[in-house]
């Protein structure tokens, strides 16, 4: 009944990848280790491996997203799977076909993996609960709930730059935590991997009142919050936050929470700067930071493919070291 069980099979192996919540450290490490292997594959002249040959991966996207869908598509193709892209505007399903009907139709095409993005929290769980038993589900972002592959590529990036031991690390997540599925999954992953401190930084309107229960320290002042951290993760700020009276203006947001070179000096001198993209330059961070030596944002994108290859092969039981 609990969603903690649904993504594991009876032997405790990953069956679906819906959320970081409930997963133990060895599973996260398994994903990171497998990603190492696939990152190396990405450096070869021939970037394909036959792990998922003859399998069908369906990208089921109810929300527009080019980059996430593209990296999943690329990851599936490098594993030699066939890929079906199914973009459904939410308005089209609400008029006729229910989500369940859509699912049944795609099952009839013998999909092996559904990669799901949906604007409702819990959508990936719903699909996993109602899909045929052989079908695996990967959550590519559901509402404000979870975006576990993004969180794992962020962990992979941190491990790449900071080493395999997470225990000494202090990590700050800056911005719109309230609406962010990325932040929720990052917080869970960081805590599972045993970092010494996760901080969230933002105005009160964008930090859930119950944030502390997520296992973080809350700061409303960025200059205090990023002091001596090893990793700064900036979150994307959506334009509609201004129109719904959560913030007065982008300018004020940048003044209060934007990451500038001056502020970056408050962190540990070797701190890295991350962002799940796409960046709003001059809103979340200054261009000089985004393009500066501490920014690892483009590395995140590259690693994203390897991490998604790792997740797909693990849930299909085809991991290199499984």
């Amino acid at each position: 009944m609990s969603h903690r069980d649904i993504q594991l099979d009876k032997d405790g192996r990953l069956r679906h990848f819906l959320t970081i919540e409930g997963l133990k450290q060895p599973i996260l490490k398994q994903i990171l280790d497998a990603s190492d292997f696939f990152a190396e594959v990405g450096e070869r002249p021939i970037k394909k491996v036959p792990s998922l040959k003859g399998k069908l991966v369906t990208n089921l996207f109810f929300e527009n997203s080019t980059r996430t869908r593209t990296t999943f598509e690329l990851a599936a193709k490098r594993l030699s799977a066939d890929v079906l892209n199914f973009n459904v505007a939410v308005s089209a399903t609400s008029k006729g076909e229910t989500l369940l009907d859509t699912l049944r139709n795609l099952e009839a095409m013998h999909s092996d993996i559904f990669v799901v993005r949906h604007n409702d929290s819990g959508a990936a769980h719903f699909i996993a609960n109602n899909a045929a038993p052989h079908v695996k589900v990967i959550n590519a972002g559901d509402g404000r709930h979870a975006h576990p592959t993004q969180a794992m590529l962020d962990m992979y990036t941190i491990r790449h730059f900071k080493g395999a031991d997470f225990t000494g690390l202090r990590v700050a997540i800056v911005g719109d935590v309230l609406h962010s599925r990325v932040a929720r999954s990052q917080i869970q992953a960081l805590n599972t991997l045993g970092v010494s401190e996760v901080r969230v930084i933002g105005p009160k309107t964008l930090i859930p009142a119950a944030a502390r229960s997520l296992g973080v320290h809350v700061y409303h002042n960025i200059d205090e919050g990023i002091r001596e951290v090893d990793v700064v993760i900036m979150l994307r700020l959506q334009k509609e936050r201004m129109s719904s009276a959560l913030l007065p203006s982008e300018q004020e947001y940048f003044q209060l929470f934007g990451l500038t070179e001056k502020r970056l000096r408050l962190t540990d001198p070797k701190a890295i700067v991350m962002h799940p993209g796409p960046i709003n330059r001059g809103v979340e961070m200054a261009s000089a930071v985004a393009d500066g030596p501490r920014s690892v944002i483009l590395k995140q994108v590259t690693f994203g493919i390897a991490v998604r290859m790792a997740v797909m092969s693990i849930i299909m039981g085809a991991a290199p070291n499984a």
Partner: peptide
């Protein structure tokens, strides 16, 4: 409810 569970599950409170 706007509280700990809603915050964790990302459900609007």
């Amino acid at each position: 409810h706007e509280g700990a569970v809603g915050a964790r599950l990302g459900l609007p409170g």
